[in-house]
Design a protein around this nucleic acid. Structure first.
Length: 112
DNA sequence: ATTTTGACGACGT
DNA sequence: GACGTCGCCAAAA
């Protein structure tokens, strides 16, 4: 039964499955979980992730524009950008360049 | 218990 | 294409 807790756990699972050098969006995760209109809850799940004692590459999750909307919620505001840069991404004005090329859609990748 | 906000997204103007 | 409004759901005030 897809309880809310399962939803949160599901978000963590998906985020942890994001391959190196790839990123996805809140909406994409929500869509994969069957709640494409609940993208905000995905953000809340990630916000709650730092309480869950589990490592989650939340820096690989940005909004649909490739903007690092949640960088301020990290340990340090520049940690997200630094990590993305370390993975080979190009960040300009807090936005991932060539976002479409590095976008990883769980609904497509996990559906195969 | 009610109101407001928030790491979003889609649609309308 | 920039800006505004609504929808969705959950947590904090």
């Amino acid at each position: 039964m897809a309880n809310q807790e399962d939803f949160y756990q599901n978000v963590y699972e998906v985020v942890k499955l994001i391959p190196f050098g790839r990123v996805t969006s809140y909406g994409a995760i929500a869509n994969y979980l069957g709640a494409k209109r609940s993208s905000r809850v995905v953000g809340w799940a990630l916000n709650s992730s730092h309480k869950n004692s589990i490592a989650i590459p939340a820096h690989r999750v940005v909004n649909r524009l490739g903007l690092l909307s949640g960088k301020h919620h990290f340990q340090t505001p520049n940690l997200m950008e630094e990590r993305l840069l370390s993975e080979g991404h190009v960040i300009v004005n807090d936005q991932i360049q060539n976002f479409d090329a590095v976008f990883w859609d769980p609904a497509s990748a996990l559906s195969l």
